[in-house]
């Protein structure tokens, strides 16, 4: 990623600008994707914590503890998968499926 100047660059000053723009666009795309993935993962984690309240235990603290154990494992995986799976947006789709499952688990009686 070094920006070493080559002697031939004076011939056209458009090329470095284009490269700079491309780089900026790539960073913006990554940031956007990361923000969406994080928001989705946080929503899923929040829903998982709410779902944990339906566990058949009397102790409220135990329910949140178990919810916390699931969240601590699930959140990083969702972020990594969502960020890594760019081809056909399969990472985001997987995140949406996880979020949808958490919503369904909260709605459906069990």
């Amino acid at each position: 990623m070094s920006r070493t100047k080559s002697p031939g660059m004076t011939a056209s000053s458009v090329q470095p600008d284009t490269r700079k723009n491309q780089k900026r666009q790539a960073v913006l795309r990554r940031l956007g994707l990361l923000a969406v993935v994080c928001a989705l993962s946080f929503l899923t984690a929040h829903l998982v914590m709410l779902d944990a309240q339906r566990l058949p235990f009397e102790d409220m603290r135990l329910k949140t503890d178990l919810g916390g154990m699931v969240i601590a494992a699930l959140f990083p995986v969702l972020v990594l998968v969502g960020f890594a799976g760019r081809r056909h947006w399969w990472g985001l789709i997987l995140g949406l499926v996880a979020c949808g499952s958490a919503i369904l688990a909260g709605i459906l009686p069990f």
């Binding site: 946080f42 914590m49 949140t64 503890d65 916390g68 154990m69 969240i71 601590a72």
Partner: peptide, 13 residues
């Protein structure tokens, strides 16, 4: 384990 122990502080029930 550290994150799991305090997860409820970040995401309350």
């Amino acid at each position: 384990t550290g994150t799991a122990i305090h997860a409820r502080a970040l995401l309350p029930a």
